[in-house]
Design a protein around this nucleic acid. Structure first.
Lengths: 240, 240
DNA sequence: GGAACGGTTCGGCGGGCGCCGAAGCGTCGA
DNA sequence: TCGACGCTTCGGCGCCCGCCGAACCGTTCC
């Protein structure tokens, strides 16, 4: 006896197909910032004609991934709800960590750099991501029991110490989410707080990309700042 | 500044495309039972030629959704790991609950039947699913704090009282998982335990499908059984 | 009113993909 | 050893879909 519904496969495939295009995927990843984007912004972001973007947006709204809001001559779209945002983050986290295009002597150095710290789409992963997450939890900025949640203290800390405009966070994307990727077996901070944290560290010059890869390196200033803000001893933890 | 990696969209789309076909989706849903299937079994299950199934399986293994094991002249495939299984369940749970093909006077009756109890792919949702889940938790069969987990007592209960062969559960799919769908705002039991529970209730004749829909109805025998096993008062809870 | 602009619709092009059947290969059992 | 069987490869067919430019519609601003 087969309990699974036959028709379920069709509907599941239809939903998957909505994300199964590089342009539509780029839209969804862009919308992961929780804001509402106009159709034109998304078209330019993905590098396609406005007409093409229109078709894609129709499709994404039809399957319930996006919601739209007409305002004047603009069409604003955003992720339908927090569940959709979480789903897209989960799918992104399911991807193997790196395409590893380079082989040879450089590979070893590159992979240790990735293990030290890297971006996982729009937030931080690797030892750096895990260390930051645990330090925030230790300082009471982050609740980690029963799902991640930013505390009131943490919210204020992100505003005061990192200069994050938390009021600009959209309501669609979860503020704090746990992300577990393939290399690290521990979770790190994702969601809007994770994205803002990553962006703030870049903006302050505390972390920098290694070449054009996903690996990030802690700068000297960043090392001092993390020591002062969270009591993180970067050299001891092998983050340099 | 855009932190999100451009190339990420391509890889995300590639993963999504792997599931974006009714046949491949049917494979994945079938494999959600946690067992390893042969290529031929999946081909017959989905109603495609063996050659077609081969191509699909290549694709699914290439993106890391499935793992394969050659054994004699058979090719066994199963879901790559528990994260993949959880991801597919999450995606399935994201689908709107019912296509609602019929309109008119029957709609109201049909939708209340769906609210009362229905299958959510291979487990039970609706008031029936929620009630069973909470009753199992109240009896110590299920831990619901910090993620669902079946207790040792619950494992024995499923074997002794429901006749479930828990030893046959595969290692790929999580045993107990929380599933939240659109209509109910409370979670219900999914995963292998949820699937086995649903199947056992069908096999014992305690629940029955309403026509060919996803709605299920508690039988008289089922009402008595749930009273005896879990102290559930079906009539009081509006499950009849 | 007219120009600029964002978004939409439509037609057409090209590529990718899912499907099958036929042929072939390796394994298993008589 | 030989046939049955499970799976794979290959060629070919047809459909679907993503892309663009051109024309069009509604809003905004001058």
């Amino acid at each position: 006896m087969r309990v699974t519904n036959d028709v379920g496969a069709d509907r599941l495939a239809e939903l998957a197909r909505a994300l199964a295009d590089p342009t539509r995927a780029a839209f969804c990843l862009a919308l992961l910032d929780g804001r509402a984007w106009t159709a034109g912004e998304l078209a330019r972001h993905a590098g396609v004609a406005a007409s093409t973007a229109t078709e894609h947006l129709h499709r994404l709204t039809a399957v319930g991934v996006l919601t739209e809001r007409r305002q004047g001559r603009h069409r604003y779209v955003e992720l339908a709800d927090a569940r959709v945002a979480a789903f897209i983050e989960d799918m992104a986290a399911l991807l193997p960590p790196a395409p590893a295009p380079v082989t040879g002597l450089r590979s070893a150095a590159a992979s240790t750099a990735l293990a030290r710290g890297r971006t996982c789409f729009d937030h931080l992963a690797g030892r750096l991501g895990v260390t930051l997450t645990e330090a925030m939890a230790a300082h009471g900025h982050l609740e980690t029991d029963g799902g991640f949640a930013l505390s009131g203290k943490g919210l204020h800390w992100m505003e005061a110490s990192l200069g994050v405009d938390t009021a600009a966070w959209g309501r669609r994307r979860p503020v704090a989410r746990a992300c577990l990727d393939w290399t690290e077996r521990r979770t790190h901070l994702a969601g809007q707080a994770g994205a803002s944290l990553c962006r703030a560290l870049f903006d302050h010059g505390w972390i920098r990309r290694v070449g054009s890869t996903r690996a990030v390196r802690l700068t000297d200033g960043g090392s001092d700042a993390l020591q002062a803000l969270l009591g993180i001893d970067a050299s001891e933890l092998g983050l340099l």
